[in-house]
Write a protein that binds this DNA or RNA. Structure first.
Length: 226
DNA sequence: CTTCTAATCCCCC
DNA sequence: GGGGGATTAGAAG
């Protein structure tokens, strides 16, 4: 059935659509709800759907108005989409003729298909990143516990003994020579002391010296040697 | 001007 | 309520 149609590119906007698309009341009275003036210039895709879709029954009465594409149309569109996610104008035209749809419908179908594919991918990516975050958080906790355990092995902390006063105090307070204000090279003397000349660092245990440098995942300001 | 994306509407199941 | 066809605005080329 050929539909007598003008090629007016007008749309019967639905009530409640975006501001610019809200139609005057008269239009609502003239056209039934669901009417789209952008019908194909050839056969109505919806009528075609009703004819081709065997599930629609094909009984008596007027064919039910249907927005859905037919299974065959959807299948061919999917097939085409698999090959290419975008269409050039020629492909679009060919496909629209093949499917008996307006090229605009084909175009819109591809646009929506791309958008929804991307949405799905984004959702999957989001789930994946959530799982990564969870496992990395666990790993971080585990490593922090490990760091704490290794730090505990350091106790008592290394001390520095003043050769002048013989007073011992924590090494962390003495990374710099208070007299000459130079950082120690930690060269050990005969007694196993790192010497500033007048100060010596007592590196209590060989096991401490053997400790590898640990990555400090949560280095705090107070941990930093000033 | 054409085509695309993003946002949104809204019919239909 | 969700899927999916359609519209709109605005960006990009």
């Amino acid at each position: 059935m050929m539909v007598v149609s003008t090629s007016l590119d007008l749309t019967m906007a639905m009530p409640g659509s975006s501001a610019s698309g809200t139609p005057p009341t008269s239009e609502l009275l003239i056209f039934p709800r669901g009417f789209d003036i952008n019908e194909p210039p050839y056969e109505d895709a919806r009528a075609v759907s009703a004819e081709e879709d065997e599930e629609s029954g094909g009984g008596g009465g007027p064919p039910r108005k249907k927005l859905r594409l037919t299974k065959e149309q959807a299948r061919l569109l999917e097939e085409s989409f698999k090959e290419n996610h975008t269409l050039n104008p020629k492909q679009k035209e060919e496909l629209s003729i093949k499917l008996n749809l307006r090229s605009r419908q084909v175009e819109v179908w591809f646009q929506n298909r791309r958008a929804r594919t991307k949405l799905k991918q984004t959702e999957m990516e989001c789930e994946y990143l959530k799982r990564c975050f969870g496992s990395l958080t666990e790993e971080n906790k585990r490593l922090q516990r490990e760091v704490e355990q290794l730090r505990a092995l350091r106790a008592p902390p290394p001390t520095v003994v003043s050769l002048d006063t013989r007073v011992a105090f924590p090494a962390s307070t003495l990374t710099m020579c208070p007299r000459c204000e130079r950082v120690s090279s930690t060269a050990l003397d005969d007694n196993g002391f790192a010497s500033f000349g007048h100060y010596a660092i007592n590196w209590f245990s060989n096991s401490f010296l053997a400790l590898p440098q640990l990555p400090d995942l949560n280095l705090k300001a107070e941990d930093a040697v000033v």
